[in-house]
């Protein structure tokens, strides 16, 4: 049974244009699915629908067999911005989901410390977000997303605002973290290279309205490292996807 399933999903904001139209998609447990498409094609909307943050106009969406609202405990969401709470330390930020669950102080501290160790930020646990670089903030956001050991992580262009070098390093780190926990990922991006490097499946979306243009299986084997980007397979798939992307309907500017 797929862990995420969208069936004939249509989304429209009020009387505005249709953002997503008759979109059907199945994501199997353990898959890393990249949603690739031009800005404005409804990628983020699709992610918000799966998270239960935005209801569908028609159609259905299920996560782990139930409605997104009932499956929230199994999901984590990473936003484009790190969305850290500036008044809390790094440690405090990672503890937020556990505080909301009324976990004891000892449990919270132990879990947050372990995760900060995992993302390489143990030494800055007592820093405040303003003291961190953009990449470090995203790693805190990543650690926070992992606190409740989610089965599904929804990532909305989390590295879009970072420089290319930091983005590449965080992509590698993301895959390293996933090796250990094997969560399912639905990853929104408009970067072809990022989609090819991370995903096991790539869903190409077109705009006006948002529809699935093509679904491609990514044959590149895991684990992937920085060297993966130098391989012929990576280059060829990236070139093919870039060409496909040019064929997709673009949003009106």
């Amino acid at each position: 049974m797929p862990i995420i399933e969208l069936l004939d999903a249509t989304k429209r904001y009020g009387d505005g244009p249709v953002v997503l139209e008759s979109l059907s998609l199945k994501v199997e447990r353990g898959e890393f699915v990249a949603l690739l498409g031009p800005s404005g094609c409804g990628k983020s909307t699709l992610l918000r629908v799966v998270a239960g943050l935005s209801p569908l106009t028609s159609g259905a969406v299920t996560v782990a067999g139930s409605s997104p609202e009932h499956a929230r405990e199994k999901m984590a969401f990473i936003f484009q911005e790190a969305t850290l709470l500036p008044w809390l330390t790094v440690q405090g930020n990672v503890e937020v989901p556990l505080r909301l669950r009324h976990e004891t102080k000892e449990t919270r501290e132990a879990r947050a410390s372990a995760l900060l160790e995992l993302v390489g930020l143990a030494t800055v646990a007592n820093y405040y977000p303003r003291q961190l670089s953009g990449g470090m903030k995203m790693r805190v956001s990543l650690a926070r997303a992992l606190t409740l050991s989610p089965e599904v992580i929804l990532l909305d262009e989390p590295f879009g605002a970072l420089d290319a070098m930091t983005r590449n390093r965080l992509n590698e780190e993301l895959l390293r973290l996933r090796e250990a926990q094997r969560w399912t990922a639905l990853f929104v991006t408009h970067s072809v290279q990022e989609a090819v490097f991370l995903s096991s499946k790539i869903v190409l979306l077109g705009a006006n309205p948002g529809r699935i243009h093509r679904v491609l299986e990514n044959p590149l084997p895991y684990p992937r490292t920085a060297e993966t980007r130098e391989t012929d397979g990576f280059q060829q798939l990236s070139a093919r996807l870039a060409a496909e992307l040019r064929q997709t309907p673009m949003p009106t500017l």
Binding site: A51, G52, L53, R72, E73, M75, A76, F77, F79, E81, T83, L85, V96, P97, R99, L100, R101, L148
Partner: peptide, 16 residues
């Protein structure tokens, strides 16, 4: 808005 969404996603109570 994203911070509010974050709290919604973690099923935070209104007082939290």
């Amino acid at each position: 808005a994203n911070r509010l969404d974050l709290f919604r996603l973690y099923n935070a109570r209104w007082w939290q």
